[in-house]
Simulated assay, not measured.
Amino acid sequence: METPANNHRPTPAQRALDVLVENAEDTAALDALADSEVLVPVPEDTSEEDATDPGTVTLPVLEQPDGEPVVPVFTSELEMAGLLPFVSRYRLVPLGALAAHWPADDLSLTIDGSSAHRLTLTSEGVRTLLARP
């Protein structure tokens, strides 16, 4: 049996990100992105109880080269492995729900940070563009 060399099909979130690279104001793409689920890496120091609690999500905060804090999330395991190959646990979270509970402080969100379709939003952008009830 032959297996195609590239069996990776873009997720709906990845297709939305591709559209947003061309037109950052595309409301249909923003809605599709907000309606999708993303992988949120579980920080290593998170207890197993907190890591599996459906009512809480511990955000992994990384520091960018300029010192600004950012939370990385991913559209697939492949995208996550490209930037954070050491991550062993993650949560699958609806992006719109995550955005609806986004902290008020200056905490950016980056989606698929190492890909050509990456998107980084400020804290205000997360709440304004992606938050869903």
Rank of each mutant, 00 (worst) to 15 (best):
Asp18Phe: 02
Thr52Met: 09
Val126Cys: 00
Leu33Asn: 04
Leu121Met: 04
Ala99Lys: 03
Leu98Ser: 05
Ala81Asp: 06
Pro43His: 02
Gly82Ser: 11
Ala13Lys: 05
Ser108Gly: 15
Ser36Arg: 02
Gly113His: 07
Ala100Ile: 13
Gly125Ser: 09
Ala51Met: 09
Gly67Cys: 11
Val57His: 09
Ser114Met: 12
Thr27Val: 12
Leu84Ser: 02
Ala24Arg: 08
Val93Asn: 10
Ser47Leu: 14
Val126Lys: 00
Glu44Ser: 05
Asp53Gln: 06
Val70Leu: 08
Arg15Gln: 14
Leu62His: 15
Trp102Gln: 00
Ala131Leu: 06
Leu39Gly: 08
Met80Phe: 00
Val87Gln: 03
Ser114Trp: 10
Glu63Lys: 12
Thr75Asp: 04
Asp53Tyr: 04
Leu33Met: 07
Glu37Phe: 07
Glu124Tyr: 11
Leu121Trp: 00
Pro72Thr: 14
Arg91Asn: 11
Leu129Pro: 02
Gly67Lys: 07
Ser108Val: 01
Met1Arg: 11
Asp26Lys: 03
Val87Trp: 13
Glu49Asp: 13
Leu130Trp: 06
Ala24Phe: 10
Ala16Met: 08
Ser36Asn: 03
Asp31Ala: 12
Ala29Lys: 03
Gly113Ser: 08
Leu78Pro: 01
Thr58Asn: 09
Ala116Met: 05
Asp35Thr: 06
Val61Asp: 08
Pro72Arg: 02
Thr3Tyr: 15
Leu92Thr: 15
Leu17Ser: 02
Asp106Arg: 14
Thr122Trp: 00
Glu2Trp: 15
Val61Leu: 07
Pro43Ile: 10
Gln64Phe: 02
Leu107Ala: 03
Asp31Pro: 05
Asp106Asn: 14
Val19His: 10
Ala28Arg: 12
Pro43Asp: 05
Asn23Arg: 08
Thr3Trp: 15
Glu68Tyr: 03
Ser76Leu: 12
His8Trp: 15
Leu30Asn: 03
Leu84Tyr: 12
Arg89Lys: 15
Pro72His: 05
Met80Lys: 03
Asn7Lys: 12
Leu92Phe: 01
Glu77Phe: 00
Ser114Asn: 11
Ala51Arg: 13
Leu84Val: 08
Gly55Arg: 13
Ser114Phe: 08
Leu121Ile: 05
Ala29Phe: 14
Ser36Val: 06
Pro12Ala: 06
Ile111His: 06
Val42Ser: 02
Pro94Phe: 12
Pro41Leu: 03
Met1Thr: 10
Thr128Gly: 01
Ala29Glu: 04
Val61Phe: 04
Val87Lys: 04
Val19Pro: 04
Ala13Ile: 08
Leu62Gln: 07
Val71Gln: 00
Leu121Ser: 02
His101Arg: 11
Val73Asn: 05
Leu84Glu: 06
Thr3Ile: 12
Leu39Phe: 01
Asn23Ser: 09
Met1Lys: 09
Glu63Thr: 14
Glu77Gln: 14
Asn6Arg: 14
Thr3Asn: 06
Val40Glu: 01
Thr75Ala: 01
Ala51Pro: 06
Asp106Ser: 13
Phe74Gln: 03
Val71Phe: 00
